[in-house]
């Protein structure tokens, strides 16, 4: 289990996270929802240990801190590196010996080409392939469905199901609610750096209706398109 207690983070005067307290259970998939600027990416970076914060994050399962996979919204890559070399780098870093690139290349990526020549979707798929090749326990996926074609979206959804079956913990942020609803056990609504609501799968429809009402309908009430 991962215990997050009173985690706060500010950038100058901007408070990105305010006293976040939540427990993440092993083998469950969590959906992180919230408008742009709600603090989702900051929360992921704090969980990953990429950013300092106040409060505490306790990874009670001792070695989980060594097995965190983080898929950023816009994954970064080194220049003059091929897809295969990128995978090799990430495997070396996590001590994965003898990685099999042919079997792991589930998205049929051109691994011998420079990553810089890949499209946005291909880059995301490569980053996802890399974290799957590592032996990770906690998966932090920031907008994994964005910019990826429909077949790969289906594949991603299936992989997340399999991660859950393998007792891995997955936290996904996405604006594509339909994709989240099919894979998540719990949904966390983040607003202005605070946890606004946590609901289970059964209450998802209610949460979606609430979001549509508050975030869409009310704002469009007076909009007249000429």
């Amino acid at each position: 289990m991962i215990e997050v207690k009173d985690v706060s983070k500010s950038f100058g005067r901007v408070q990105a996270l305010r006293n976040i307290t939540i427990n993440f259970e092993r083998g469950k998939v969590y959906g992180l929802i919230g408008p742009n600027g709600a603090g989702k990416t900051t929360f992921f970076e704090c969980l990953a240990g990429l950013m300092d914060y106040s409060g505490s994050i306790d990874y009670s399962q001792h070695d989980i801190r060594n097995h965190i996979a983080y898929l950023p919204t816009n994954p970064t890559f080194l220049t003059l590196i091929t897809g295969k070399e990128h995978l090799q780098l990430l495997c070396n870093a996590r001590r994965v010996t003898k990685p099999n690139f042919r079997i792991s290349n589930i998205f049929n990526l051109p691994l011998n080409r420079f990553v810089t020549s890949y499209s946005t979707g291909m880059k995301k798929k490569l980053a996802f392939t890399a974290i799957l090749m590592q032996k990770n326990e906690l998966f932090l996926l920031d907008e994994p469905f964005n910019g990826v074609d429909i077949q790969s979206n289906i594949l991603l959804t299936e992989i997340i199901h399999r991660l859950k079956q393998a007792n891995k913990t997955v936290i996904i942020s996405s604006h594509i609610l339909s994709s989240l609803s099919s894979v998540c056990d719990n949904f966390i609504l983040l607003k202005e750096g605070k946890i606004h609501k946590i609901v289970g799968k059964d209450a998802f429809n209610e949460l979606e209706a609430d979001l549509i009402k508050n975030e869409v309908s009310n704002k469009l009430e007076h909009l007249i398109i000429r």
Partner: peptide
């Protein structure tokens, strides 16, 4: 930073 953070 990501390319250092990934190291175990």
């Amino acid at each position: 930073t990501y390319f250092v953070w990934i190291y175990q």
